[in-house]
C-alpha cells in the first residue's frame, strides 16, 4: 500500500548495485580480453586518457567511439568531471588530453610549469547559444543587457522590448546543464564574476532540449535558449548585440567562427607539449572534416576546416 518515493529510493540503493557490479564484471572481462592485443600493438595500444569538461564529454565520447571503430588499435578512455578536473589531471601527469570549456587560468599554468608540464592549447570546436522565440514573434533584435533583464525577471512583457502586449514565458535548461551555467554567467550576469543575479524564479526549467523546442514552437509568449546545433527551422533565432550601440548579429556557423556573435565560446583540449604519435593523430582527426561533422551532430559549432 505504501510508497512510491520509498520504492524509488530503494531502487536507487539496492537495485543499481547489482547492475553496477555486473557492468564492472563485464568491463573486467572485456579489459582482460583486450590485454594481449594491447600488448602486441605496443605503445599505440596504451589508452589515451581524455578527461575533463562535462560540456564536452558527450562530444569527446562520440569522437572516441568513431575513431576507435576506424582505428581498432587506438584506445581512448573518456571521463567527465569538469574542466578543472581535467586540467588538474594534466598538471599531475595522469591525463594525456584535458578537455576544457574555458581557457586555463594563470595559476593553473604556474602549477603546471612547477610540475614540468607545458600545456598546449587546441581549439577543437565552438559552442554558441542561440536565443529562440516563436516564429510569429515580431521581436528580431535584443542586446545582452536586455536579455539579462528578461531572464532575471525585470522585463516581464514583450511590449517593453518592442513586441506585442504579451507576458514573457522564460524557458531554460535544468540548472545542472553546462548550457544553463554558461548562459547564467555570460548573459544573465553579463560576464561579471561577482554578480549574484539569478534566473527569475518563474523560469521554466526543461529537462531536455526537446522540451524547450516543443514549447517555443507552440507558445508565442515564450523565449528560450539552446545550443545552436539544436535549433530547428521552425523556431526563430534572435540577433544579439553585445550592447545598445553594437551591431545585431544573427547566430550562424559563419558569425560564430568569425567571433562576431556574442554568446559563443571556444572549446579546448590541452596536451602536455606539442602532441606526438597517437595523440597527434587523434587531434588531427578531430580537427578534420570527419571529426568536425560529429561536432555539428551534437549541437556544437564546427570549426572551419581549411
Amino acid at each position: 500500500m505504501i510508497d512510491r518515493p520509498g520504492r524509488w529510493c530503494y531502487n536507487l540503493n539496492s537495485m543499481h548495485k547489482p547492475i553496477a557490479v555486473s557492468i564492472l564484471f563485464i568491463l573486467l572481462i572485456v579489459l582482460a580480453a583486450c590485454r594481449p592485443a594491447a600488448g602486441e600493438a605496443g605503445e599505440a595500444g596504451v589508452a589515451i586518457q581524455n578527461v575533463g569538461s562535462d560540456t564536452i564529454v558527450n562530444l569527446a565520447l562520440a569522437w572516441a567511439e568513431t575513431y576507435q571503430t576506424q582505428n581498432p588499435d587506438a584506445r581512448i578512455a573518456v571521463t567527465g568531471g569538469g574542466s578543472g578536473t581535467g586540467i588538474a589531471g594534466l598538471i599531475n601527469g595522469t591525463v594525456n588530453i584535458a578537455n576544457a570549456s574555458r581557457q586555463m587560468k594563470a595559476e593553473e599554468m604556474e602549477a603546471a610549469e612547477e610540475n614540468g608540464i607545458t600545456p598546449v592549447e587546441h581549439v577543437i570546436a565552438r559552442d554558441a547559444i542561440a536565443v529562440i522565440v516563436h516564429p510569429s514573434n515580431p521581436v528580431d533584435n535584443l542586446t545582452l543587457p536586455q536579455l539579462s533583464d528578461i531572464f532575471s525577471g525585470r522585463i516581464t512583457n514583450w511590449s517593453e522590448i518592442g513586441g506585442e502586449d504579451r507576458p514573457i514565458v522564460l524557458l531554460s535548461r535544468e540548472s545542472n546543464s553546462g548550457t544553463h551555467v554558461y548562459f547564467l554567467e555570460q548573459v544573465v550576469r553579463l560576464g561579471d564574476k561577482h554578480a549574484s543575479i539569478l534566473f527569475s524564479p518563474d523560469t521554466l526549467l526543461m529537462p531536455s532540449s526537446e522540451g524547450i523546442s516543443a514549447e517555443v514552437r507552440q507558445n508565442p509568449n515564450s523565449i528560450g535558449y539552446d545550443g545552436l546545433g539544436y535549433v530547428t527551422p521552425d523556431q526563430k533565432t534572435i540577433a544579439v548585440a553585445a550592447d545598445a550601440g553594437g551591431p545585431f548579429v544573427p547566430p550562424s556557423i559563419e558569425t560564430v567562427n568569425s567571433g562576431a556573435y556574442p554568446i559563443a565560446r571556444d572549446l579546448y583540449m590541452y596536451t602536455n607539449g606539442e602532441p606526438q604519435g597517437a595523440i597527434a593523430e587523434y587531434l588531427n582527426w578531430i580537427r578534420s572534416t570527419e571529426g568536425q561533422k560529429i561536432v555539428g551532430e551534437l549541437g556544437f559549432v564546427p570549426l572551419e576546416v581549411e
Binding site: M1, R4, E174, P201, D202, L204, L205, P207
Partner: peptide
C-alpha cells in the same frame, strides 16, 4: 489513498507538463 499515493509519487509525466519553475 492508492490513487493519491500514485499522484504524489509520479515523476516523469509531472516533469514534462508542469514547467518545473520553483516559484
Amino acid at each position: 489513498m492508492l490513487g493519491i499515493g500514485r499522484a504524489i509519487g509520479e515523476t516523469m509525466a509531472v516533469m514534462m507538463v508542469t514547467g518545473n519553475a520553483a516559484r
